[in-house]
Design a protein around this nucleic acid. Structure first.
Length: 438
DNA sequence: CTCTGATCATGT
DNA sequence: ACATGATCAGAG
């Protein structure tokens, strides 16, 4: 089929809504090569748009400057929707990237517009019964400066001989995700002898979710004033550096705490100064398509943390998946933690600590592998209904991530672990590890 | 002291 | 009513 204009293409595409892959799969591709992850794309190209089933890399709408992508989403418990997976692009060649300028032709951005076909992923259903519910022409040019910056960050890391330390959290939209048959696959990098994991460019899960949600967002996108979240956050809190928590909160709210300092005073400050986690997407477009979180941490005068860092409550259902496919793995791979450090000590308690600086934490593949061990211990504990198998502190040497209780008075967090899906325990990362990351 | 299980104030 | 981010506080 040949489309003269984008309008024509979109008008035709309207008819795909409501179709299942079974209906479109005229050549029975789903049966023939079950393992081919590109199947959905091929089915739509041949079965819906009528392209011959050749092996040309992308039979897309080149003349129109549009590239076709098929992507799944899932419905969340709270009624929102999220992209199911990151969109993997071309493999990163460590040897050639160092000589490349940000080059549209090598990546998806050659065309800047992508036609995304969204289907609803439902693990209860057979793949061929997934329903295509939406499509969307997405113009990436608005994100170009962020993506270019991401590209440079990745290139820079390879130039420094740190390809083995790449993390998806390093960047905002364009990620360097791992790619390889097993997690032990390694490849060479040009400026170091240390083997690195093979990686590919990807549009991060959080970015795809942002695009997906823009389907029903009515408000217009802010102008991008900042290239990275760090810049943005720093701009918001710069003026408070050196001031105590009480003073900062007073400056922000007019409320002055004298005693009975709230435990979450630091969070109340970051909520007001930078934004509540839920509002962040409205504050700056970068937040809408990234997985950045703001955390607060007391440190001593050497920047050594006074506390561990906690994450959200674990749910039993988080651990149904194997580690490789788990929510937590994607989360740790993609997340970037912005840490507002407050200097304190055993004498200088909550409320009287002074904002010292802002640091950033991301996790590399070695970290992620160690997290996997912790994850599997939780999974074992749940699968066997045996709390002694949990990854308590110091469960194994080199442990970074541990479980800790997280309830209110009277909760026996560990003993009641199996009572409800949402448990009263959480993950925490160790102080030593945070310090090393700094 | 440090470690680790327990608890709190707030927001939704 | 309860999840969250964070700190507290007793044990060792």
């Amino acid at each position: 089929m040949d489309f003269k204009t984008i309008d024509e293409l979109l008008k035709y595409t309207e008819n795909i809504k409501g179709k299942t892959f079974r209906e479109l799969d005229k050549d029975n591709l789903l049966e023939k090569n079950k393992k081919d992850k590109g199947n959905f794309g091929k089915i739509i190209e041949t079965g819906f748009y009528g392209y011959p089933n050749n092996n040309k890399a992308e039979a897309d709408f080149n003349d129109l400057g549009v590239e076709l992508k098929v992507s799944g989403y899932v419905k969340n418990k709270n009624g929102t929707i999220s992209a199911k997976e990151r969109l993997v692009l071309s493999k990163i060649d460590y040897n050639s990237i160092v000589n490349e300028e940000f080059n549209y032709s090598k990546l998806l951005f050659k065309n800047k517009k992508i036609l995304i076909i969204w289907y609803e992923y439902d693990k209860e259903k057979d793949m061929s019964d997934f329903v295509i519910t939406d499509y969307q022409l997405y113009d990436m040019s608005g994100d170009e400066i962020v993506i270019k910056n991401d590209f440079e960050i990745i290139k820079e890391k390879v130039l420094e001989g740190y390809a083995h330390l790449l993390s998806e959290g390093d960047t905002s939209y364009l990620g360097a995700c791992t790619k390889g048959a097993t997690s032990d696959d390694k490849t060479k990098q040009p400026f170091s002898n240390i083997p690195a994991k093979p990686r590919a460019f990807s549009l991060k899960n959080s970015y795809m979710t942002g695009i997906l949600r823009s389907l029903d967002l009515t408000f217009t996108v802010d102008k991008l004033e900042y290239k990275t979240i760090d810049e943005y956050v720093y701009a918001q809190v710069k003026k408070f550096i050196g001031k105590t928590q009480i003073d900062i909160y007073f400056a922000l709210s007019g409320i002055e705490y004298k005693n009975d300092i709230p435990k979450n005073l630091s969070k109340m400050i970051s909520d007001k100064a930078i934004g509540k986690d839920k509002e962040l997407p409205e504050k700056n477009d970068l937040f809408r398509k990234t997985n950045y979180i703001i955390k607060n941490l007391p440190v001593d005068n050497n920047d050594y943390p006074l506390e561990r860092m906690s994450f959200r409550n674990l749910t039993l259902s988080d651990f149904k998946d194997e580690w490789e496919a788990s929510w937590w793995k994607t989360y740790f791979e993609e997340v970037t933690i912005i840490v507002l450090c407050y200097e304190g000590s055993s004498k200088i308690k909550n409320g009287f600590r002074k904002l010292k600086d802002i640091k950033k934490i991301t996790f590399n593949s070695d970290d992620i592998d160690v997290f996997g061990r912790t994850y599997n211990m939780v999974k074992q504990a749940i699968d066997n209904k045996d709390i002694t198998k949990l990854p308590y502190p110091n469960s194994f040497s080199g442990q970074i991530l541990e479980v800790a209780p997280k309830g209110i008075k009277g909760d026996d967090a560990y003993l009641n672990l199996f009572k409800k899906d949402t448990t009263k325990v959480c993950f925490m990362i160790s102080k030593d590890f945070i310090f090393k990351k700094f």
